[in-house]
């Protein structure tokens, strides 16, 4: 079986996989990182989104062998070692941007990439369009959009909407 070496959340792993093994299968079944979810089989729902070299990708549509040498970040790798949440995670909690939690890991990973790729900030409409690759059935996206709008300010070091909301 092919061998693949990849760095996941800062830890280097070498695993044996079939060539047909998807990245998400390697993460969930071999590395037991079950925070990355599978919600469809047509590459649309985005529950499986992780970062590969900093870019959001659907881990259900990449072979593990294609990730040789790459740097993968999953939802488990976002919070600081002391438990401090990433600003996007914190914003999702503050704005009630999750209900059942199933789409949440992919949604958060997509949202972070989206914010990173828009250093000048996004309008509500841009955020909505930017979430095209992620489905949520619980929230109606309403609070997800609000959370991302707040988190982008924190991530870009602008006025801290979160701090303000928390103070209220």
């Amino acid at each position: 079986m092919p061998q693949v070496t990849l760095t996941v959340n800062g830890t280097k792993h070498t695993v044996e996989v079939e060539a047909r093994t998807l990245l998400v299968e390697a993460l969930r079944e071999t590395l037991r990182l079950t925070g990355t979810h599978v919600g469809c089989d047509t590459s649309q729902c985005g529950a499986c989104v992780v970062h590969m070299g900093g870019d959001s990708v659907k881990s259900c549509t990449i072979l593990a062998v294609q990730c040789e040498g790459s740097d993968i970040t999953t939802i488990e790798g976002l919070a600081a070692a002391d438990g401090t949440l990433h600003p996007m995670q914190e914003a999702f909690r503050e704005y009630h941007a999750l209900q059942c939690g199933f789409c949440t890991p992919g949604m958060v990973m997509s949202a972070i990439d989206l914010v990173n790729k828009h250093p000048d900030g996004m309008t509500e409409q841009q955020i909505r369009e930017g979430l095209e690759g992620n489905l949520c059935r619980c929230t109606g996206y309403h609070n997800i959009v609000k959370a991302i709008a707040a988190a982008q300010d924190v991530m870009h070091g602008r006025v801290s909407e979160l701090a303000r909301a928390a103070a209220e």
Binding site: L33, G35, R93
Partner: peptide, 21 residues
């Protein structure tokens, strides 16, 4: 009140059936 369950969901530590082995 902000939700108690969110800490695990936001960090990929929820436990759904397919996560159980």
């Amino acid at each position: 009140l902000r939700r108690k369950e969110d800490f695990r969901f936001l960090q990929g530590r929820g436990q759904y059936v397919d996560d159980i082995n």
